[in-house]
């Protein structure tokens, strides 16, 4: 396994009086796609938001390239090269597709070659370039949210349930796009409940339950062990396969 770009060590997060994460520990190997799986309410989204500094970790370490980023602000974390695609997509509906991407390009004007690559991944972005993002369909919004995260090269991409609510054809597009991203230099940590989606993409996997990591290993091993899948993800499989 390659060296981890991100390591969580004993991560605890409280939201108001609720203790959500209880000592979460796992590594995200550089250059790989790590799936974070688990039932609804297991703490997956909280984990991503804690990494981004959107919810402050109450204890533990978040090591990014060996540096503890747990106390940094969200903009500081983003500027280290971490991009985030939230479950809600959070596209800017009143801004055009172009404006959404211009805003995401922190380091200057949009790079033409990068843009061509993006248009290759998501042709809809070129087609709807000058339209307000609010008029896009759910799948197109998801493509825009991912495009926004990768419009400039980032070291680590955090993606929260990209397949949620999408038609199968759009999900297939997403899988292709993430595969291509994976072949590049981007490390991806992807939260997912759709196991079919997850097993087509994941290199390694961490499974959460009740705010704790209950399983870590390779995706291939989990995908080939039906009993383990049922034990770890039974409810999720029933609901989402």
């Amino acid at each position: 396994m390659s060296e981890p770009i991100l390591s969580l060590r004993g991560l605890n997060t409280h939201i108001a009086q609720y203790h959500i994460l209880h000592g979460v520990e796992f590594d995200v190997p550089r250059g790989q796609l790590t799936m974070l799986l688990g039932r609804n309410g297991a703490g997956k989204t909280t984990t991503l938001r804690s990494i981004m500094g959107l919810w402050r970790a109450s204890a533990g370490e978040i090591l990014f390239e060996g540096r503890n980023i747990a106390g940094l602000s969200t903009p500081e974390i983003a500027r280290l090269g971490i991009a985030y695609v939230p479950e809600s997509m959070a596209i800017f509906a009143d801004l055009t597709v172009k404006e959404n991407l211009v805003l995401a390009a922190r380091n200057g004007p949009l790079d033409g070659a990068r843009l061509d690559w993006l248009f290759g991944l998501f042709p809809a972005m070129k087609r709807f370039w000058t339209l307000p993002a609010g008029v896009l369909s759910g799948g197109q919004k998801q493509m825009l949210a991912v495009s926004r995260a990768i419009v400039e090269p980032r070291k680590l991409l955090l993606v929260d349930e990209p397949s949620k609510g999408l038609a199968p054809s759009i999900i297939a597009n997403m899988i292709t796009a993430f595969r291509e991203l994976k072949q590049g230099d981007t490390t991806i940590l992807l939260v997912e409940q759709n196991f079919n989606f997850a097993r087509q993409l994941g290199d390694s996997v961490a499974v959460m339950d009740d705010g704790r990591i209950v399983h870590r290993g390779s995706m291939a091993a989990l995908a080939s062990d039906a009993g383990l899948q049922q034990k770890l993800l039974g409810l999720s499989l029933d609901a989402h396969q």
């Binding site: 991009a83 800017f92 801004l95 805003l103 922190r106």
Partner: peptide
Amino acid sequence: RAGVENREMVESLGYR
């Protein structure tokens, strides 16, 4: 304009 819509996402893009 983006901040008026969703300030959390603006911060996630790296802007203070």
